[in-house]
Structure formats: C-alpha cells, structure tokens
Nucleic acid binder design. Structure first.
Lengths: 140, 140
DNA sequence: CGTGCTATTTGTTATGATTACAATGCAAAG
DNA sequence: CTTTGCATTGTAATCATAACAAATAGCACG
C-alpha cells in the first residue's frame, strides 16, 4: 500500500500531498463504510499517531470542496463521507444504521435534470430508508 | 384560525390535542419554509408565551413518528421540518440557503421501488442542490 | 548548513443543536 | 377535592463541529 495513486490524485487536484491527507484519502479509497470524521480519526490513529481530529475535519472539508469525496447527510447526527465521487444513491438501514451504496443500473431510477422550477441544479442526491437485507434475514 | 382541523388530525393519529401540539401542527400547515425547531419556537413564542424549546423538539419527534410531518436532513447544521407528508423532493440553494419544495410532475423523475439489492425500502428521499431562481436573477 | 517564509498540523477552547432528566402543571376519573 | 398519569417546562449535559492561536514542517534562498 504505497499510496502513490492518492499522492498523484491530490497533486492533480492542486493539493499538496501531506502525510495526513494521503492517509485520509487512502482510507476513503479502501473503506466503503461511509465513515464519519471521528471514525476516520480513530482508525488512523494507530497508523499516524500524531493525527488530530481537527486535521481530519479540515482535510475532509478540503476534499469535498475540491471534489475528491462527497459528504452524506442522511444521518441526523453526524455527517458521513464517501470516497466515491460518481453520483450514486444510498440506503440507510433504520435497524442497524449501516449505509449501503446503491448501484443504479436503471437510469430512470434516478432524478436527472439541469433546471427545475427555474432553479439551477448542480447536485442530485437521493437515498432510501428501510430495513437492509441482513437485518431482514435476522428477523426470523 | 380556529385550528379545528389540526385538533382533529391529532386525535385521528392518537395524539391528545394539547395547546402546543395544535399550535405547532398549525404552524407547519401554514408555513412552507421548512423551519427548524428553533425557528418554530421563536415564531410561536409570541402566541404561546409558555412554550419551551424542549416541547417543540418533543412534539416534532412525536409528529415524525406518527407520520404527521417529515424531517429534512439536507442542511448539515440543523434538521428542518416539513408539514407536507406526501413524498416530494427538495431543493437547497447553496447561496441563500432556502429550501424549496419540488413538485414532481414527471413520475419517472423520482426513484421508486419496494426492494433494492435485497433491502426493503420504506422511505424515498431525494433532493437537489444548486442556485435558486431568485439568486440566479440577482447575479446580474 | 542556517534563516526566514508559508502552508499544515495540532491542541485547546468555543459554539450550537439536540437530548436527558427531574420538577412542575394540568386534566380526567373516582 | 384528591389521585393518577401524561404534558410541559427549565436546566444541565452531550456531542459534533468550528474557531483560533501556537507549534511544526517543508522549502527557497543566501
């Protein structure tokens, strides 16, 4: 895990590839669990002992502004982050609280437009709530 | 404004129609601004001087659980509330911060399914971000 | 090698939304 | 009138996030 890819990606986006930034981006590229800032912080502390939570927050905000990741606001409590920048939906399980990615194979399933009611649309977000497959099967 | 309709609606949903509850429901039915708990509290203080912010929070949570209103989590800072319970999208203006209702005239514009990837879907949420018509026109 | 400059990181402290909790109030039933 | 139980209230706690100032690191230049 040399994180060369992450280093390059940062530079291409005009961000200098400091240690914390490379590690956080690498983390986002390897974890599809939609982590919160705090989860990222706790998970990376072992690898980068000097890391501070403030840096995680700053870095994530920077990444979002540069289009390197997206923030997810399904959960009423905390913001979650997703290293996948291509538009896709999410599913929040009301029982276990996990967030799943939704792969939209059918195009018409997702809302799509540039203008609506005269507003200029730059981002489309959609998500579902319910009970996930795993929780469904344990409700035997 | 006798709020008889709200009184009835509360009773029909198994909620005893106390003064704060009637007033908050009435407020949600007359304001389509997607207010936060605090905005509702401040706006109703004149009319109901004994009202407490805690009651507003409790009541909103009760309403959501009984399906009398829905909570909107577009904004990363606070949760907003919407008295309209029929499924509809929202639009958040990144400039002025206002939230608009989106009337979906075209059915295929909104995602729709009962099951997806094995998960059981009970709620569908979607929203857009961008620049609203008003802010667009003032960018002259 | 040092020096200074700028960007980055860090720790601490503040903020602000939401909740927990305990106390008070109130309305219906006896 | 009392009792009983739910509603409401005020206060204090919690917790995510941001502000801020100090410390540090990377780097161009002498």
């Amino acid at each position: 895990m040399e994180s060369i890819k992450e280093r390059e990606e940062l530079v291409m986006h005009g961000i200098s590839p400091s240690r914390p930034r490379v590690e956080i981006l690498n983390y986002l590229h390897n974890n599809f669990t939609h982590p919160t800032a705090d989860e990222i912080f706790k998970d990376l502390r072992g690898k980068v002992p000097t890391l501070s939570l403030t840096t995680v927050y700053n870095t994530l905000k920077l990444f979002v502004s540069k289009g390197l990741c997206q923030s997810i606001t399904i959960n009423e409590k905390q913001v979650c982050y997703d290293g996948q920048t291509i538009e896709h939906g999410h599913f929040l399980c009301s029982i276990c609280g996990k967030i799943y990615d939704i792969k939209d194979n059918e195009e018409q399933d997702k809302p799509h437009k540039d203008y609506m009611d005269g507003h200029h649309i730059t981002e489309v977000h959609y998500y579902y709530k319910g009970v996930c497959a795993e929780c469904l099967s344990s409700l035997s």
